[in-house]
Every structure is written in structure tokens, then in C-alpha cells.
Design a protein around this nucleic acid. Structure first.
Lengths: 207, 207, 207, 207
DNA sequence: CATGAATGAGGGTTCATTCAT
DNA sequence: AATGAATGAACCCTCATTCAT
């Protein structure tokens, strides 16, 4: 007949959907949930307003979905970097590096998670605290391992992980506020790594 | 918030003004800038909506003003605590303690600064980065002094102060998320102090 | 001070509220629930759109309220006319007369009930069937009395009342479709009365 | 609805067209003109939305067309029943029976004409009053014949026919509101017939 | 013929802001 | 000073309609 929905049509639809989601991430990251209007998003994506509602049920659902997806991406990327090493110093170093890399190459990801979604919408609050929780746990795991192995002395790993999460966030945001973040990135990673290793009383050789 | 006085001839006037500002801090802290309506504020303050516009030019100006005032209060309180001591370990300990105290007894202050004003309104961005800058500098000063005195080894005090600021924020927010924050406060202050001192390679006796 | 809400202010507010409700009745009666926009209503009332939402929670609630209020008015007016007499022939005659009077002097009332609210909105359906039920019962009561008294033979008074309600509605609507309804009103009342009395096998003298 | 045929070469085409029209009648009857969306109709007919606009110029035109066709079906069916007899009592009885039959076996027809199309759309108003007019005339004809023949006394047959039309509508709608309309149908037809014959002062034997 | 992605006018509603009292 | 009724720009979203495939 005339339809071939599994072929090009489907691909094009997915492409447009993805394009709109990327545009939405940019707009949400830049303006935050409330200040970002659906009109802003469709203008950035160069489509009509009705197209938005063809692909997404509403602004809030899209935002929450984007937030979750972005959180997953960030967490998984850092987690993979951490898990790629077995030694705590290496793990922390790699984790920080991964985080800074994302901040520099995908600043919208960090903006969305740390800025765009703060105090946004009730249905997001749960997702937000889940994200913070997962982030803390992500840093806590290598610490617990190191404590078990005797690499570092016993300490409240949970609290330390919270401090790490907050410290890294702030440094990364400060980095992004710079005119040319990538220039300061290398030293930031180094310094943050040393900061962290000292903070957990790590005595071995830094990476 | 904080210090509010001037002469006494127009205390009646300031009564309403103050009531509205206090109500506004609570409402902004709880709901965030956008979700908080002017109507919410005047209802909480038990005045008419017209009264709001007699005392304040508009919602945005009030918010920015409140943000600044609250930031001043927080920074000065912590700063005083830090300056009340001369030894870096004591300074950090006292500073953290002051911060945690504020969080517990005036949670709205912390909520407003760390949550309610994130991604709120363009004209706030400058104030916000000024606040972050001052907060970083606040922590940086004792570090620089200690480095000068040889109490701690040389290090990028700016970066460390950023990490401190972020770390303290996160821990404080996690504290506030607890059902009874005050119970965990003491150990949090202790752990955070030790964390910080280790992180800057402080070798003396902790306070 | 400056407020005197029980005085003129309150009266003026009620006056405006009433004016808006009357405008709304006209618009709803003319266009029906869906085709009538809130903008239509506020234009007819010569107020801004925000004013609508100052007085009423939303379009649907207002419509349902208006429908109920109008139904009450119609039913009570007819019921009073019916109850003002004791003899069934008189009761029916007066009832019809009251109905026709309303149709002629307040055509919007009839339009709203018989036309504007048909198939309008789910939450109205209950109100609508309640109105039809009450209308049927209104006509049924004098019939039951007359049957009890032996004035008319036994018959399914419920069914007859339904037929009456429908018959009167149609005749009234046909009347309103005329260029000058009032000219035909008198004969319509007479003929409808005779029709009704014959239909229930009333043998006495018509009024 | 009703009779639909033409040649057979394009039965495939008519299959979709017919499916959509049948679906549309159901949807319009159930939800009313405004609440029924084109999407509802095409989903019920299991075709694409573009197909709708291949066969019909727009929603309004289809509705008006459907209304007319449905009105024709109803009027012709009743009219045939009436014309199948020569005696007024039989004519009325058969007419009522035909109406009630349609209501029970094709409730959507009645819903569409009496409910779905009330206050729907301006361009329908003419069709609607034409339908009411034809319905009144349908009942008026046997009355005029009976008056001519002296079977019933002289009376305003037009007005009586209006009353008949309204009475029958209401009773039929009340019937459809019952959980099992068919159980009450027989007695309803009987009672309505007797009601009508009495109303026109028919003295012969009821059918 | 048939499809369904794409469009955008227009509807209901919110809320910061004004101003007559 | 204080009030709160009134305003209207702007938001989110729906849905009839179009058109490239």
C-alpha cells in the first residue's frame, strides 16, 4: 500500500524525536524547568508546537524523562570509569576524570542535573534525590572496598562520599563558569584527585 | 533574617514589611522562585496583595534582595566563626559548626540559597555566582594563612576551597533531608572537620 | 483603615458577579457549552478574562452551577403555579402558562436547559437527568392526586408525565422559533391545556 | 445507516467509507459533536486519519450529512409505518411502535438526532429545524385526515403534532435511560398510543 | 488510495501587576 | 498606608486539517 513504518519512516521519526530531545536538554539546561517554555523548545528544534505534543505527552513528563536519562548517562559513565580500575586511587582519579570530561564535552548534561532541575517540579523531587543517592553510593563503593582491604583507615564512608559528590559538583560548576574550561580541566582533575586521596587518608602513591 | 533595625518611629511599617520578608523567605525556600506566587507570600504574611507592591517593586526584586540578605547573613555568620579562631584546624571546625547550626535552626536560609535560587531568574545569576565566590573565598582565607604559616603544605587553596564549599553544601543538604537532622549534626561536624583537615594535609592535632 | 467589605464594595462585587452570570447564561444559551468560550463570556460582560477567574473557578463549574440554578428557577416557578391551585385542570393550565411565560420573558432560561446543556460535559449529565426527573415528577404529582380523588381514571401517571414534559418542551421551543412568540402564546397555552386534559381523560369543565 | 448501495465496482472503497460513517454515528451519538474527535472516529473505524479527509471534506460536513441521513432514515421508517394503515388509531399506534423499535435496535440513531446534535454547530441548526418540522408534519398528516373524515373533532393539528413529537421523544429517551429498555417497550407503546388517542379525542376502539 | 507526521490557530487557565477606593 | 477587584500577557495543551511519501 503506502506505509512502511519499519523502514525509513521509523528512522526519520526517531531521528526527529532525538533531535527534539536534544534541543529540550539544551533549553532546560540553560533556562531551568519553569523558565523554559514549550515554545522555546520547539523553536530550538525548528518544529511546530503541535509536533512537540505528537512526540511527548507533556512538558513535565519529558523533563522528568530527560532528567532520568541524563542521570543514568552520567552515573553510568562515571561508574564505568571507576570500575575499570581496582585500586582506590585509580578509581577515584578515573571517576573524577570521567565527570570532568562530561562537564566539558556535554556541559548541558551537568547543567541539567545540577541546575536545571533544582526546585523544578514535585514529581521530579523523587528522581532528584534518587540521583543524589546513586551518586553518593557511586563514590562510596570504592571507599568501602579500600577500607575492607585496609588500603585506607576505617571512616564514615557514607559521609565522605557525600562530601566527594558535593566537592566534585562545585569544582565542575566552577570549571564551567570559566571562559575556557578545558584549559583548567587537567589540573582540576589532578588537584581534586589529590584532595580526595588525602581526605580519605590514603598513604600509597597517587596515580 | 539577621539584623534588622533602624530607628523606632516607624516600627509599625517595618512590622508588615518584615512579616512579608520572613514569609517570603519561607515560601521561596519551600517552593522555589517560580512555584512561589506573590499570593502565597501575602497569605503567609496575612496582608493584602496590594501591600506587597507598596513595599516591594516586584517579585523578582524582592527575591534577589532576599537572596543577597540571606547570603550576607550566612557568610557573615560563618565568617565570624572562622575569624574567632587563629588556628586553621579550629577555624575550619568552627566554620563548619556555624554552617551546620544555621542549617538546623534556620533551614530556610540554606534552602533558599542552595535550592530555591537555582536556575531561578536571570538577574539572580550574578548574585548567585557572587555568593558562591564569596563562600569560596571565605574558606580560602584560612587556607592561605595556614600555607603562609607553614601549618599546611602548599596547595591550590582556591580549588580546595571550592571543594570545601561543595562538600559542606552537600553534607548539609543530606542532613536536612533526614527526619531529625539535629541528631546527626554533631557527628557530621566532627567527620567533616576531620575530612577537611586530612584533605589539606594538616598534621597537627584536630580540635 | 481603608476596607469596608460589607458595604458598597461587597454590593458592587455581587452586582458584577451577577452581571457576569447573566452574560454567561446568554452566551451558553446561544452557543451551547462547547462553542461558548470564556472569551465570549467576558466580552459579553465587558470585563477582562482574568475577572472571570476571579469570580468563578472555571468554565465547567460555572456552567453546571448556572444549569442547576436555572433548573431550580424553572422548576420552582412552574411548581408554584401548579400548587397555587387544587383542581387538576387548573393545575395543569397554570403550570403550562408559567412555563410559556418563562419561555417568552426569559428565553435564555429555556434555551440553556433544553439546548445549551445537551451533550455538554460529563459532570453535567447527572444534573441533567436530575432536572428531567424533577420535571417529570412535577407533572406527575397533580396527576396522582387527581387519580386518588377519582377526578381522572387510573393510568400510568409516570408515563403521562413524561409525555407532558416532552410535549410542553417541544411546543415551547416551537414557540420560541417564531418571530413573535408572544402572539401565539395565549392560544398555545389554551390548546396545550386542552390537549393535556383530554390526554388524561379529564371529564370536567376545562378552566 | 439504512440503505446504502450503488453499483458494485467500488465496494472496497465504500467499505472504508461506510465503516467510517458507522463509526462516526456511534461516536457522535455517544459523545456529542464537540467531544467527539476525528481521531475517535478513525480509531473506531480502524483507518488512518488521512483517510478521513479523503472521503469527507471535514468533520462538520460529515456530521451534518450523517444527521440528515439519519433523520431521513428515522422519518421514512416511521412514515412507512404510519402510511401502512388508513385508520388514525392504527396509524398512530404503528408510528409509535416504529419509533420505539428504532430506539431499541438502533439507539445511536435516536441519540444522534435528539442529543448529539443539539447545540452542536451553527450550520446544523437549519437541518435540525427541518428535521423537527418534518417530524411534526409526519404526525400532523394522519390528524388532518382524521379531522377531514370526522373521525376526530376539529383541532389545531399542528400544535397537537408538535406535542406528539415532543412527547414521543421524551418517552423514548426515558426508555433508553432504563437498564433494559426492551422490557418496558411494549407497555410504553400501548400507553403512549392510548395517551395520544385520548389527547385527540378519538372515540373509536383503540387498536 | 492510504498513511500518519506535521502544523498552528485557538481554548482554558494562571499569575504578576495596577489602581480606584 | 492598605486593600483587593480588575487586568491581560503568556503559558500549556488540544485537535481539525494538510501534505509528502
Amino acid at each position: 500500500m503506502a506505509y512502511r513504518s519499519s523502514d525509513k519512516t521509523r528512522q526519520k521519526k526517531d531521528a526527529k524525536r532525538t533531535a527534539m530531545m536534544q534541543a529540550a536538554v539544551q533549553v532546560f539546561a540553560e533556562k531551568g524547568y519553569y523558565a523554559a517554555t514549550v515554545r522555546d523548545i520547539v523553536q530550538a528544534a525548528e518544529v511546530a508546537i503541535g509536533t512537540f505534543y505528537f512526540y511527548f505527552p507533556d512538558k513535565e513528563t519529558l523533563f522528568v524523562h530527560l532528567y532520568e536519562e541524563t542521570a543514568d548517562f552520567l552515573l553510568q559513565t562515571i561508574d564505568q570509569a571507576v570500575r575499570s580500575r581496582t585500586e582506590v586511587a585509580q578509581q577515584i582519579s578515573r571517576g573524577i576524570q570521567a565527570y570532568v570530561n562530561i562537564a566539558i564535552y556535554e556541559p548541558a548534561v551537568v547543567q541539567l542535573l545540577l541546575v536545571g532541575g533544582v526546585g523544578a517540579v514535585p514529581s521530579l523531587e523523587a528522581k532528584r534525590s534518587t540521583f543524589r543517592e546513586r551518586l553518593v553510593r557511586l563514590w562510596q563503593r570504592p571507599l568501602d572496598q579500600a577500607i575492607d582491604q585496609g588500603t585506607i583507615p576505617d571512616q564514615n564512608s557514607r559521609r565522605v562520599a557525600e562530601a566527594f559528590a558535593g566537592a566534585f559538583d562545585e569544582v565542575v560548576l566552577q570549571l564551567l563558569a570559566l571562559p575556557e574550561p578545558e584549559q583548567a580541566a587537567v589540573s582540576a582533575v589532578q588537584e581534586l584527585t589529590l584532595f580526595s586521596l588525602r581526605a580519605i587518608a590514603f598513604r600509597g602513591n597517587p596515580p
